[in-house]
């Protein structure tokens, strides 16, 4: 699992960690039931404070991405519907992003692209 912290970023460090772990779960790199590194272990590896790391985990727990079992550590949670929805949304976003990239390469303008999308939506 990759976690990269930027000190130059405006985002707080806990937010950067939470976002990246969330990303790993949504991309299925981390699956339901997988163990996460311990808070203190992660703090040591990233050379950041324990409280910052804990806050990232608290955030993920509140959002339902992970469960924490006292004395055992944190695990990727059973995925709920909202989570799945967000996951699917992310997939859609990725596919659209790819379409935009392709279009750009072919020199298809924004308006034409929008029209194409509108037509596709109509057809449904």
């Amino acid at each position: 699992m990759k976690i990269v912290i930027s000190n130059a970023s405006d985002d707080p460090i806990y937010e950067q960690i939470a976002r990246q772990i969330r990303g790993h779960i949504l991309s299925d790199e981390l699956r339901e039931g997988d163990a996460l590194p311990s808070i203190r272990g992660l703090a040591r590896e990233l050379q950041i404070s324990v409280i910052t790391t804990k806050r990232a985990f608290d955030e993920l727990e509140r959002e339902g991405f992970i469960d924490t079992v006292t004395g055992k550590g944190s695990f990727v949670a059973m995925q709920n519907k909202d989570l799945l929805r967000e996951k699917k949304m992310k997939q859609v976003e990725n596919i659209l992003a790819e379409a935009v990239r392709e279009a750009r390469m072919l020199g298809i303008g924004r308006e034409d692209l929008m029209n194409m999308l509108a037509v596709l939506c109509e057809e449904e």
Partner: peptide, 25 residues
Amino acid sequence: SDLEKIADYITFVHDGEVVFSATRE
């Protein structure tokens, strides 16, 4: 700055008094 990152709590001392003592966050 490097040590600052691993500090959970920061106590700021100024002129013999504690200005604040709180978590880094």
